[in-house]
Amino acid sequence: MYQFVTGPMAWIAFGIFFLGMAVKVVSLFYLTREKDKVVFNHFSWQWSLKSIIRWLIPFGSRSMREKPLFTIITFSFHICLLITPIFLLSHNIILEERWGISLWTLPESVSDILTIVVIVTVVFLALRRIALADVRIVTSAYDYLLLAITAMPFITGFLAYHQFSNYKFWLIFHILSGEIMLIAIPFTRLSHIFLFFMTRAHIGSEMGQRRGAATW
């Protein structure tokens, strides 16, 4: 089982992730060029970049400032979600063993805290979906499923690292859930990790280049 999830399954997951996203981004680009010409006639790199950068900075937009607690939570969630797996010591050890390359790594105590941050913020996001009427009304089971898919690699990774009861089980579960997340990205809303830049570039240009209005 361990051989399978770290061997062929890993190749499949990363393959689907990279290939799927590439196909998606390219096909959306061509579809837009064919059907939404309006996107290109006012496209501006300057307004696109401004719009993207503003929204990557915490409290960079008016809406973020209006909901400060949620902004802190989502930024903590997203930052920890990205940093932890990439700079995790054990992930880089595997990279080193297999391909002889590795990145700078986080101290294990730090990555442990970042993992906890991800888990806690996911719980908060789930509770927020239940507690606030305006979020609840647009929430369906699918929203919780995606939260679960995102949280699972962190929960299982945490349990595996701390060797709760059956280490082997949690480890395999962890690898598998990470692979499920990678596979899910191109086919679900999680694709926003790439599409964010495209849709923001569009609205930045649409509002900025066309009428000089800021989208933040």
Binding site: L28, T32, E34, R129, T199
Partner: peptide, 16 residues
């Protein structure tokens, strides 16, 4: 088109 496809898919129901 590309816009509707992307928009309808990625709306995170965040309520901003």
């Amino acid at each position: 088109g590309g816009r509707f496809k992307a928009w309808l898919e990625i709306c995170a129901h965040c309520a901003y």
